[in-house]
Design a binder for these strands. Structure first.
Length: 834
RNA sequence: GCCGAAGUGGCGGAACGGUAUACGCGGCGGUCUCAAAAACCGCUGGGGGUAGCCCUGUGUGGGUUCGAAUCCCACCUUCGGCACCA
């Protein structure tokens, strides 16, 4: 009985402490502010704002079903920076949207009998809800969903404009067909190496089909010019390699006993005297005509093998270079020499002319081939100090021309030009630039995409659908059968139409457009929501475009990011836009991995669900942890304990602001105040530099250090000063872009005006941030021996004197003589003794 | 094979050519508690010493420099991209 009393007392005093210390309840706080922000339209950017505009954009997500951690990793830091720029005084637009066309929706229709529209829009609804929980400054009224007829109407409109301006065309071409997806793919969508479909990893097969193309190659040279944009070197290199520009000469080889000539392309006209054979691609159209009867069987056998290989796999560049002689001879135009003609699969039909001159001494592939076929390997470019002996391997560098008729003795770069001139002069060839880049294949044999607005008429041929008849709608009652044929092909109502030109019977194009078409211009549409006279309202478009800061993954380097640049340049030439590049600055974030360091995937069971975290630790902690985990461009593994550390940090910020100040006796010293102001202003400087440079991890580390200081300072009399309020306000303002809900909540509790997200970013005062005492490191022969605390501005002489008086310095110098003293003002002094 | 990026504590990662390991996690010790959890405080690269301290240490080996994680050369490893483009 008696002993229970102290216990009860203790219990009640603990309750008292509990009452005075309010808990940080992130889930409650976030839903409160998300509702208020949305109701207030806090993030809806207007064009009549006096501040300079800033268009911040993060790559739009595909409507796969759920917002996963990868989306958060891409979007949360991007949002934080958009918020920061807003506080810096920009009129920031940060719009959301969905890439909503594509095969998964159609596969769901075939497998689960859900209409692609329903499947997609259900996903959009779910993802919208999840996006809202991030607490990002999404400008919802600008949202675009690419499968919405109000959107794809304009995708079709762009197609018509490209058609009108000769940038869209239909052609028969050998294309890559995915037997699983039952559609053709763009070259970019075929994984090189194993030649599989990038989506389902089924080996693709070659088919000759009539397809729709965009003339992106018209812009090849302009796409190589990155001078107007600040994009990462990595992306620029990848695009440059993909475009693959090479300068050379195209010339004719006469064929013995035939009036026909074959054209070859070379980047090394300076080596033309070294040709000892010529090669045609196995698919070259002249092969049959030139093949001698006694070689026919062998040639056909080889063609068959080559075709099979081309379809299945052509794994390696190291494969033996094989080929067969076709029994014909070509004549070298510069010296009349007769050289045997081969077919070999190392020559590709879809690059250059599909035929080459074989110069084994100066090309590694030709060298291998010549060795196998026992062909001569004449040297025509002499390396420095060449001994006149046959080369042990192909020499591909520059040198002095030899055995090259009147060109012998010339340095090879000069010979290159001289021979090119000569061929042009004699009319047998001319300079030519070749590209690896091909025209963009945009047609797909699927339902779930924007229909290509063209009509086939027996009388008029190909006729574009008139603008006023757009959109060509996808029929809602299409049947989704696992036949492999596009549902549009089987839908009479869609298929049959009247010819817009003659009014006679017409048949609609059933191909739909590549989804990269939709994503090539979505950033334009965000500027003009609801505009119905065109894809972009000229005034609003001019105000917002181009995008100032784009962020997204590197995986789109040669697809989306190249297409959208092409799109912008084409629109400029058509007169729709007046700028050259869609996005001025680009930042590529890395990939967030599972705790095991592997890519997050359901099959690995290492998926971290953001929804669970939002409902437990809160959106702010999740956002902050993703930014704290490491450099944003590096990505990295998730760590369950790591996020708890970030949560503790936010909890301690909460405590610093909300806990009642304890009764503290005494008045603060000048030094206490100065030191608080110093760390405040130093932190503002650090944090500002970091967020400018996308260094969110060190930015948060700086805020943690600052908060740790404030926790201790709160126990001292400085807590009663203006410097303290300045510090706490700065802390919240700097935290607001990272943890927008916590920032807003605490800002309100401090009595700050709504909203913290409309306040100015704090500025630092260099004078307040300046140190009064500096630590000078004393080294002897480059090794740290002592430290000196000196007042700012102490002259070198005095520092030297203090240093030489240091017992430790003296000990390590001992009886050696001092050779020199290096002094880095205010930082370090190194005594060199020997 | 070619091109590019990167290798730092037990872990994620910090460090304008100038105090290596900030910040966080984990671990150890402590306070509080009947106890535990939470929270808070302290310690925490390795080796040596009772201690003041000393030695050593940023993938490996060299070099430049008063001084190198940082710059240069070679090599090893990892990750990306490209891979017959004439």
């Amino acid at each position: 009985m008696f002993s229970r009393i102290p216990g009860q007392l203790r219990k009640s005093s603990r309750e008292e402490v509990f009452m005075t210390r309010e808990k940080y309840e992130p889930v409650r706080i976030q839903s409160r502010w998300q509702k208020k922000w949305e109701a207030d339209g806090l993030y809806h950017a207007q064009e009549d704002d006096p501040h300079p505009k800033f268009y911040a954009l993060t790559m739009l997500p595909y409507t796969s079903g759920d917002l996963h951690m990868g989306h958060w990793y891409a979007m949360a830091p991007s949002d934080a920076r958009a918020r920061y720029l807003r506080m810096k005084g920009y009129n920031v637009m940060f719009p959301p949207g969905f890439d909503a066309f594509g095969l998964p929706a159609e596969n769901a229709a075939i497998n689960h009998h859900i209409h692609p529209y329903k499947w997609t829009m259900d996903n959009v609804a779910r993802m919208r809800g999840q996006l809202r929980t991030m607490g990002a400054m999404w400008d919802w009224p600008r949202e675009a969903v690419t499968c919405d007829p109000a959107y794809y109407k304009w995708t079709q409109w762009f197609f018509l404009k490209f058609w009108e301006h000769g940038l869209a065309y239909r052609a028969m071409a050998p294309v890559d067909w995915c037997p699983h997806c039952k559609t053709v793919l763009a070259r970019e969508q075929v994984l090189e190496g194993d030649r599989t479909c990038e989506r389902c990893h089924t080996p693709v097969v070659k088919k000759d089909l009539e397809q729709w193309f965009f003339r992106i190659t018209n812009y090849a040279d302009e796409l190589l010019d990155f001078s107007r944009i600040q994009w990462p070197d990595r992306v620029r290199t990848m695009q440059t390699n993909w475009i693959g520009r090479s300068e050379g000469v195209e010339f004719d080889l006469s064929i013995e006993g035939s009036p026909k000539k074959i054209r070859v392309f070379t980047t090394r006209p300076d080596t033309v005297f070294g040709m000892s054979f010529a090669v045609l691609a196995p698919e070259h159209p002249f092969v049959h005509e030139f093949t001698a009867p006694e070689h026919r069987a062998e040639v056909e056998d080889y063609e068959y093998k080559a075709r099979r290989l081309a379809e299945i796999d052509r794994l390696s560049a190291e494969r033996e270079r094989e080929g067969v002689f076709i029994g014909a001879y070509a004549l070298n135009p510069v010296n009349g020499e007769r050289v045997p003609l081969y077919i070999a699969d190392y020559v590709l039909m879809n690059y250059g002319t599909g035929a080459i001159m074989g110069v084994p001494a100066h090309d590694e592939r030709d060298y291998d081939f010549a060795r196998r076929q026992h062909l001569p390997i004449p040297t025509v470019i002499a390396p420095a100090n060449w001994d006149g002996q046959p080369l042990p391997e192909a020499y591909t560098g520059q040198g002095t021309m030899v055995n090259s008729g009147k060109f012998s003795g010339l340095p090879s770069p000069q010979g290159w030009q001289a021979i090119a001139d000569e061929m042009e002069h004699l009319g047998i060839g001319e300079r030519k630039v070749n590209y690896r880049l091909h025209d963009w294949l945009i047609s797909r044999q699927r339902y779930w995409g924007a229909p290509i607005p063209m009509v086939y008429c027996d009388h008029c041929g190909l006729v574009p659908v008139p603008e006023e008849q757009l959109p060509v709608l996808l029929p809602e009652d299409a049947e989704f059968l696992p036949t492999g044929d596009s549902p549009l092909k089987l839908h009479q109502g869609f298929l049959s139409t009247t010819c817009p030109r003659c009014g006679g019977p017409g048949r609609r194009e059933t191909d739909t457009m590549d989804t990269f078409m939709c994503s090539s211009w979505y950033h334009m549409r965000y500027t003009s929501p609801g505009y119905d006279k065109g894809p972009i309202d000229p005034q609003r478009g001019r105000y917002w475009l181009p995008v100032d800061q784009y962020t997204g993954g590197i995986e789109h380097a040669v697809m989306h990011l190249l297409y959208t640049r092409f799109f912008t340049k084409a629109c400029r030439d058509i007169g729709i836009l007046d700028h050259d590049e869609p996005m001025l600055r680009l930042f590529n974030q890395g990939t967030i991995l599972g705790e095991d360091g592997e890519k997050m995937s359901k099959s690995r069971g290492n998926v971290v669900n953001p929804d669970d975290l939002v409902n437990s630790l809160g959106a702010d902690t999740t956002r902050a942890y993703l930014m704290f985990i490491g450099p944003w461009d590096a990505g990295g593994p998730w760590n369950t304990h790591g996020i708890e550390g970030v949560h503790r940090f936010l909890q301690r910020v909460w405590d610093v602001v909300t806990r009642p100040v304890r009764a503290i006796a005494g008045i603060p010293t000048d030094e206490q105040v100065a030191s608080l102001r110093r760390i405040t202003h130093k932190t503002i400087r650090r944090v500002t530099d970091d967020i400018e440079a996308f260094r969110f991890n060190t930015m948060i580390a700086a805020l943690m250090e600052f908060n740790n200081y404030l926790i201790k300072a709160k126990e001292t009399p400085v807590v009663l000063t203006d410097a303290w309020s300045e510090a706490v306000r700065a802390l919240l303002l700097m935290l607001a872009p990272i943890a927008p809900h916590l920032g807003e909540e605490l800002w309100e509790r401090l009595g700050g005006p709504y909203s913290i997200h409309q306040q100015s970013w704090p500025e630092w005062d260099e004078a307040a941030a300046a140190d009064e005492l500096l630590t000078v490191v004393l080294q002897v022969n480059g090794r740290v021996r002592d430290r000196l605390s000196i007042p700012v501005g102490l002259g070198e002489e005095q520092v030297r004197e203090l240093a030489m008086n240091s017992p430790k310095v003296q000990h390590f110098v001992a009886d050696q003589s001092i050779v020199k003293i290096v002094y880095v003002p205010g930082k370090l002094l190194n005594v060199v003794a020997r």
